[in-house]
Simulated scan of single mutants.
Amino acid sequence: MRDTKESRLLLVLLVVVAFALITMDIRGGENSPLDRPRQAAQSVFGPVEKSVAGAVDPVGNAIDAVRDSGDRSGTISRLERENETLKQQLGSKDITRNRAAELDKMLKTAGAGQYTIKGAQIIAIGAAQGFSWTVTIDAGSNDGIARDMTVINGDGLVGRVTTVGPSTATVLLANDPDFTVGTRLEKSMELGFATGQGNRPMRVQLLNGKANVHDGDRLVTFGSEAGKPFVAGVPVGRIISVDPSGGNLTKTVQVQPFVSFTKLDIVGVVVVGPRTDPRDSVLPPRPATSAKAKPKPRTTPSGTPSGGATPSDTPSGGATPDDSVQNYNVTLGDEPTPTTTSGG
Rank of each mutant, 00 (worst) to 15 (best):
G223N: 06
P338Y: 06
V282H: 01
A62R: 15
T300S: 14
L103D: 08
N329M: 14
G198I: 03
G156T: 01
I95P: 09
T134D: 02
I145C: 02
A55Q: 14
S77A: 15
P33D: 04
L173Y: 03
L34I: 11
V135Q: 02
T150G: 02
T320D: 06
I122W: 02
A232M: 06
V151I: 02
L264Y: 00
D243R: 15
P177W: 04
G333I: 05
F258V: 03
T262E: 13
V161L: 02
A40Q: 13
V231C: 04
V181C: 06
N83V: 10
V151C: 00
E30F: 12
R67S: 12
L157G: 01
L191C: 09
D94M: 15
N98A: 14
N83H: 11
A226V: 07
S245L: 07
P244Y: 09
G247P: 00
G29W: 08
L185C: 04
D178V: 05
D178P: 02
G343R: 11
P244F: 08
N175E: 03
P201R: 05
Q197W: 07
S306W: 09
V253C: 06
A55M: 13
D323L: 05
T23A: 15
G273N: 01
G74D: 13
N175D: 07
R99P: 03
I22S: 15
I26W: 11
Q114D: 10
D217L: 00
R67K: 11
A55P: 06
L103P: 08
D104I: 10
A124E: 15
P295K: 08
P37T: 07
I145A: 02
N153Q: 06
P285W: 07
Q256S: 12
R67M: 09
L11C: 11
N83Q: 13
Q89R: 11
G60I: 13
D217Q: 01
R218P: 00
A40V: 14
V234P: 01
T300L: 14
L219G: 02
A146N: 09
T341Q: 12
V270F: 00
L206G: 01
L207G: 12
T168A: 03
R203D: 12
I22K: 10
V59P: 04
D217A: 03
G318A: 06
P274F: 02
R2F: 11
G113W: 03
A55C: 08
T331S: 12
T23E: 14
L283D: 00
L206I: 10
Q129M: 11
G307T: 05
G165T: 09
P321C: 08
T314C: 14
V270W: 00
G54E: 15
G227R: 02
G209L: 02
D176I: 01
E190Q: 12
G246T: 07
G198D: 03
M106Q: 07
S312G: 12
F222Q: 09
D148I: 01
G29K: 11
S43I: 12
G318W: 03
W133G: 02
R238L: 10
T252E: 10
A127Y: 05
G113D: 04
V204E: 01
A226I: 06
G307L: 05
N208C: 10
S92E: 14
L86E: 04
D334G: 09
R298V: 04
E30K: 15
G126F: 08
Q114L: 08
E82Y: 11
S342H: 10
A174R: 00
A291Q: 15
R72F: 10
G130A: 14
R275G: 13
V16I: 15
L90V: 13
